[in-house]
Design a protein around this nucleic acid. Structure first.
Length: 311
RNA sequence: GGAGAGUUGGCUGAGCGGUCAAAAGCAGCAGACUGUAAAUCUGCCGGGCCACGCCCUACGGAGGUUCGAAUCCUCCACUCUCCA
């Protein structure tokens, strides 16, 4: 994987990220296809929308269909008929979202499958192994994404665990003959002193890129921006910077201005499924009664199949 | 023609003397969603008001019993099932 910054405008950057599944123009928004499918879209439809990279999830694919099967079928790319780049989350986010069914230990995390209750174990080594065997282009280090609102001391301990797991993730990847690019993840919650420490540790490791994790977990918007604006400029200049799980259209613009190169978020697809759509003139709740007989396109300035073909 | 069951708010459907403006689901109307346990979740959902309480109108229709009726009785209308 190769990354180059081609132009700058203030803190914002324009760059190119070369993978074995194509070159990605940054800043980039990566659609989320947790289970190797961007919900509500066929792979053909997704391709037509133009993203050069998308996201899948280690925890979810580990449960179903499982690594063995994915490997046997030729990897995730082949599995979903997608020839462009794929980045996988390590499963670290599930320590947050599935907090009620997991137990964290130094060695790794015990999950009780949300599907059938059966036990699963995920560790830095295990997560890297799965991500590698799935054949993805960019893997994420296994981290702990702490919830918003816990005490400084607890966030610090969580961050230190993430740092140890980052080392192990990197070692696990380097121990393989060939493997995906690997990004480290900065944590530290909303505490700027911790964020600074985390950048020093993660930024000092030989990762291919660095992500800001642990935001958009329920904190007020201003606090999220404070963290991003503080942390982004501290990140290594020459590596791609990825703001995990963000965000709204406004968040993306702000993130780019802060020097972020990569984003991902479930919001556009989840909101679309729930009837809220993003347009060039703001959010639209398409199920509102006043649109029932509206014959105009959703967004006259948009060239997507929906805006081009239906009211 | 005979026997039986039924008619509840937009729909389905509980309730079977007071705590019932009437369960629940659906539909409807809004809102929320940020590395997806989400096509999910939350709120409102007869009308009115000087509203955390009061007043109207409501359980097919008309009467009646009762302090009190969606609930009991009588008649009427309609629906369904079975037997001829």
């Amino acid at each position: 994987m190769k990354f180059a910054v081609l132009a700058r405008d203030g803190a914002a950057r324009r760059g190119e990220l070369a993978t074995s599944h194509g070159t990605i123009q940054t800043p980039v928004f990566m659609p989320v296809g947790t289970l190797a499918s961007v919900k509500s879209l066929t792979t053909d439809q997704l391709r037509a929308l133009g993203p050069e990279i998308m996201l899948c999830n280690t925890y979810h694919l580990m449960l179903r269909p499982g690594v063995d099967l994915l490997e046997q079928l030729g990897g995730v790319h082949r599995f979903m008929g997608w020839e462009r780049a794929i980045l996988t989350d390590s499963g670290g986010f599930q320590l947050f979202s599935l907090a009620s069914i997991r137990k964290i230990k130094e060695e790794g995390v015990e999950f009780r499958s949300h599907l059938d209750g059966s036990p699963y174990f995920l560790s830095p080594e295990k997560s890297i192994e799965i991500q590698s065997r799935m054949g993805v282009d960019i893997a994420m280090a296994f981290d702990e994404c702490p919830a918003y609102g816990i005490a400084h001391g607890e966030v610090a301990k969580s961050m230190e665990l993430t740092h140890r797991w980052a080392r192990r993730s990197l070692d696990a990847r380097n121990a393989r003959e060939s493997g995906p690019a690997l990004f480290g993840i900065v944590q530290g919650g909303i505490h700027l002193d911790l964020r600074r420490q985390s950048v020093e540790v993660i930024g000092g490791m030989d990762f291919d890129g660095v992500a800001i994790g642990g935001v958009s977990v329920g904190e007020p918007k201003p606090e999220m921006f404070e963290v991003v604006n503080f942390t982004a400029p501290l990140l290594p200049e020459e590596k791609p910077r990825y703001l995990m799980g963000v965000g709204t259209p406004e968040d993306l613009v702000n993130g780019v201005a802060a020097g972020i190169d990569m984003f991902d978020c479930v919001m556009p697809t989840r909101n679309a499924r729930n009837g809220t759509l993003f347009t060039s003139f703001g959010k639209v709740s398409i199920k509102n009664a006043r649109f029932a007989a509206d014959q105009r396109p959703l967004d006259p300035q948009c060239s997507c199949p929906t805006c081009g073909s239906v009211s």
